[in-house]
Every structure is written in C-alpha cells, then in structure tokens.
Amino acid sequence: MNDSPLIETTELTRYFDEVRAVDRLSIQVYPGEVFGLLGHNGAGKTTTVRLLNGLLKPSDGRALVMGHDPLGKGTTVRAQTGVLTETPSLDERLTGRENLAIFAALYQVPKLRVASRVEELLESFGLAGRADDPVGEYSRGMKQRLALARTLLHQPQLLFLDEPTSGLDPVSSRRVQELIADLSASGKTVLLCTHNLEEAHRLCHRVAVLRQGKVIALGTPEELAERISEQLQLVVEVAPEDEQQIRKVVHQRGWQVADQKQPGTYQIKGATRDQIPDLVRDLAQAGVDVYQMVNVQPTLEDVYFALHAGEEVRV
C-alpha cells in the first residue's frame, strides 16, 4: 500500500434535506485493493458511489478519484471508472451485443476495437450464445453478468460495484463473485458496496462498515473480527444426555453457554486459550463425553451484527 490511493475522501458529507446520507467519510482505497462498503439499505453506500463519480455534489468535505476531484472533473473521472449500478440498468429492448456496443461508443472505445472487445466480454462472461437475444429475455443472473461486462468495456482500473449479487440465486451469485475475484486477481481496484457479509468476507481486502452514513469500523475482516473477539468462542459437542453437566461446569467457571442448532452442541463464551485444558479436564471429571471442541473465529457477520447491536469497535 505504498502507492497513492485511487480513492481518497476527506470528511466527505452529503445531506438530503435534513438527512445526512454520508457523514464525514474519510477513506483511502489503494491500487489493486477490493474495498468493501458494508451497511444496511440506506447506510450511504450508493450515495458514496454517486459522490465519487460526480453524479452528486458533496455538501461538505472532498474526494479525489484517480487524482481528480469528481466535483469539477466528473467527466474525466467517469471515463476512467466502471460502475455497476444496483439494478442492471440495461435497455431490455436491445440485445446484449447492442447494449455493449452502444456503451462502448459512449465510453469512447476505439471504433475498430468495439466489435472484438464486445465479443471478448460476451465470451468471458458466458453470454456469447445469447448475445443476439433481447436483454428482456435474459435471466436476472445473465443481466447482472452483462451489466458487469459493460463496466469493463473501456478497461477501467477502478470499479464500483453496487450490490453486485443482490437478488441473484445462489448459483448466479457465486458466478458473479468468481468474476469479481478474477477482476481483483487481474489487478483491478474494486469498491464493493454490499450487505452480503459472506461476500464481503470472501472478496474484500478491507472493509468499512457504514451506519447512517458514518464509518463505524474500518479494517481487514480479520482485524475487525479480532477486535470484537478478545475472548474465544468455543463450540463443544457432547452427548445429548450430558447437558446438565456441561452447563454446570461452564457456569462454575463464570462463562456463558448457548445452545447451537445441533442437539448436544453448545457455544461457550468467556474462556481464553490458556483455560481450554482446564475446561477439558473439568468436563472429563464431570463424566461428560466430549466428541468435538472447536475454537471458532468470529466472521465478518459476527462483527457486523456486533456493531449494529451497539458494541463499539475502535477504529
């Protein structure tokens, strides 16, 4: 991360009437990074993308995208970025090929390159076979892939992907995620807006969690997980008839125990790593048959819900 950031915002703020949609946002996104903006609907993710592409003017603060201020140089910024909007935003009366060819001209792809570039993208996104069908006849997943292909027509280095898998079935969703991973592997910088936490965990190098337009946590998924989890979360599987004993042992040590979905499986919170051998001994002495004990790392999902439940994470 020695390079200068492709996106840099300083106290970027945007109001809609009295509502602060983006609240003093200060982030840096570096070349080659997949940076996630996480948050509920209305958290300010889409507004941020619009601000960074010069579609909206900030109420306060400033942004630099690839060295340009989108406020005055929106056209220059947009020529170098690719944006996947929340809805595919494709003209359904045109074919897939026509949609791409028209946007290639809008993005000033050299005339002689258009046909081959369109063909290339249709092939790599698995749409070549349906390229000449009207987009209205495409499935939701195909439309999303076509929209993603459209963002790459002019080979931008910086991509903004706003809820790329929203509304997709699991198979299409996984396909799109793989395409995003490929883009990242090819060196593209991606700002990924999502409320899909598993997706963010899989794809993002760093994430910023937004609540009411404000960053409430920022870091790698692992860093954030560590910050909310100073203590271990152990999942223990015992014989179902040993429930009383395991609860007794755990409570004697002042820890918490919670049922898991599987019968005989419990989550223990409060233990540290050094205390695991003692716990195993206590359980054995109490006659509890332990089948499995796993130290579970908190996921980004745990972090997210912890944050939204009000637990503060110092950034």
């Binding site: 220059t76 970025t81 809805t87 935003s89 359904e92 946007f103």
Partner: peptide, 13 residues
C-alpha cells in the same frame, strides 16, 4: 425503467 443511471455514469457531460 431505471436505465438512466447507467447513462449518468458514462463520461458524457
């Protein structure tokens, strides 16, 4: 139809 947004993200003024 919600197709205007993609056009707004193009480099056209």
């Amino acid at each position: 139809r919600g197709t205007i947004e993609a056009l707004l993200y193009t480099p056209l003024s």
